[in-house]
Every structure is written in C-alpha cells, then in structure tokens.
Simulated assay, not measured.
Amino acid sequence: MKLYIQNMVCLCCKMTVASELKKMDLNYYNLELGEVSLVKPIKKKERTHLKNVLHEYGLELMDDKKAILVEKIVTIIVNMIHNSDEVPPVNFSIFLTNKLNQDYHSLSNLFSKTKGITIEHFIILHKIERVKELIMYDELSLTKISYQLHYSSVAHLSNQFKKITGLTPTFFKNIKNKKRKPLENLQ
C-alpha cells in the first residue's frame, strides 16, 4: 500500500517519516521523497494517527489524486535540482512527461491551478535556491554552477538570480548573512 506525503522534500523529512512509522510499528519496504510503500494496508485509526503526527512536522498525508499528482511533480523537480549533481539534458517538460507518463499541458494546468504558479516559475525558484546553496559552499565557480544547472550562460544565471533575489550572485556571495529559504516554502 502506498501513502503519499506532501512537503516531504529532504533527507530529514524521510528520517522523520521512518521514525514515526517505526514508533507505530508500521513496516515499509520503500521510502522515497513524497511517498512510502507499506508492507500491509494501514487501518483507518492508524492512518488518522499518522496524519496527525506528520502534520506536527509540517508534512501532510494526502488522499486526493490531483494533489498526489502535483506532489509527484514537486518531488521530481526537487530531486532533479537539489538531490542530483546533474540536471537532465532534456527539456523539463519532456522530462516530466516521460516520468509521469502524462501530457505536459495537463500537468502544467493542474500544477498552476493547485500551486498558483507555473511549473516553469517553480523550477526557477528551486534553481535559484540551489545556486544560493552552491555559492555558499564556495566550491564551484559561477561558470561551473551555470553549467551544472543547465543555464545557457553565466549571464543568463546572473540575470535570473537578480530577477528573483534582487541581488547579483557576486553580491550574494559577499554578504555575511546569506538567506536561504526552506524548500517546502518555495511556492
């Protein structure tokens, strides 16, 4: 039995879910960002308890098929940008279509209606957060960062960064109190 969990976007979230499932003696065989596969079906009372416990951590157990699909889109984007060293070389729309086996236009409309922003803007917000993270690590040049995140040029990355943050990447690199946003708040 699969359960879908909204806002499960990082390793810490996975560890929290695993811990809570263990406390409830619910065995699982697969735990990924946004979903968990249980060994056996969950009882209604257990589901209610799990839903309440996860809610305390900012995680939401989902039932609605449309919400589940939107969360799958979010999870794919987060994994692609934040948990992979390599962004797929194909267009994001093609990547999402292939991953979810659904028409991109339908996915895009559903996402926009649900989240209030386009998939493209959501991707840009996440790419900029990833750029901030990589700048803070100070291990890669802007050229390498732009290449890693499939920007056409450093100028393109810089323009997009300034448009979203109001700062140039170089200025951001030099400020002392760099501000990043939690991934679950990028909407």
Rank of each mutant, 00 (worst) to 15 (best):
G58K: 07
L59N: 06
L59R: 02
L59E: 05
M62D: 07
K65P: 12
A67Q: 09
A67D: 13
E71P: 02
K72P: 03
I73F: 08
I73A: 04
V74S: 03
V74K: 08
I77A: 04
I77S: 00
V78M: 03
N79F: 01
N79G: 06
M80C: 09
M80W: 10
M80P: 04
I81V: 13
I81S: 03
H82R: 03
N83Q: 07
N83S: 02
D85K: 03
D85C: 02
E86S: 08
V87W: 04
V87Y: 12
P89F: 15
V90D: 05
N91K: 15
N91D: 00
F92Q: 04
S93L: 00
S93M: 08
I94Q: 10
F95E: 02
T97A: 02
N98E: 12
K99W: 04
K99E: 11
Q102P: 06
D103I: 09
Y104Q: 09
Y104R: 07
S106H: 06
S106I: 14
L107I: 03
S108G: 00
N109D: 11
N109F: 10
L110Q: 07
S112H: 08
K113E: 10
K113R: 10
I117M: 05
I117Y: 00
E120R: 05
E120Y: 14
H121N: 02
F122I: 00
L125S: 07
H126D: 01
K127V: 01
K127P: 10
E129P: 10
E129W: 03
E129D: 06
R130H: 07
R130I: 02
V131Q: 04
K132L: 14
E133H: 14
E133N: 11
L134Q: 09
I135A: 10
M136P: 15
Y137K: 10
Y137E: 13
E139K: 15
E139S: 14
E139V: 12
L140K: 14
L140E: 14
S141C: 09
S141F: 05
S141V: 09
L142W: 09
T143P: 08
I145H: 13
I145A: 07
I145K: 06
S146F: 10
S146H: 02
Y147C: 02
Y147R: 06
Q148G: 15
L149I: 09
S152Q: 05
S152C: 12
S152A: 11
S153I: 01
S153Q: 07
V154G: 08
V154E: 14
H156L: 08
H156W: 02
S158F: 05
S158W: 04
N159I: 00
K162P: 13
K163Y: 09
L167R: 03
T168L: 05
F172Y: 12
F172H: 06
I175G: 11
I175V: 13
K178F: 12
K178S: 13
K178W: 13
P182K: 05
P182R: 09
L183G: 03
E184N: 06
